[in-house]
Amino acid sequence: MRIYKTTYFVMVLTALAIIATSPGIATAKDAKPDAKNTTEVVKDTKGNFARGAKLWANRCSSCHNMRDPKDLTDSEWEATIMHMRIRAGLSGQDTRDILVFLQKTN
């Protein structure tokens, strides 16, 4: 029974590792404009204001009242959104989009 559970857990981790190493997935600071990534990927590493506004309205209110972007400075939002990325299971792209929105409207 224990071996079964361990195997199951390893399989889950393996599946997640496959997701993790999928092409085109990279953190913002890993992507370089001159890399062989598509133009879209390079653009996305900067975050998208419109997508961020929509995600902010749809995702953040799932748990709590939406904070005024002016509540925090750019760097405070950076740490706060990093925290929410972990807590709410946001993707890196969603995180960058929301961050751009908050930093441009604070």
């Binding site: 993790a20 997935i25 990279a26 953190t27 972990i86 890196g92």
Partner: peptide, 12 residues
Amino acid sequence: IDLVLNDYMALI
């Protein structure tokens, strides 16, 4: 301590 491995995964 949260390590961001990529856009879809973090190790906590």
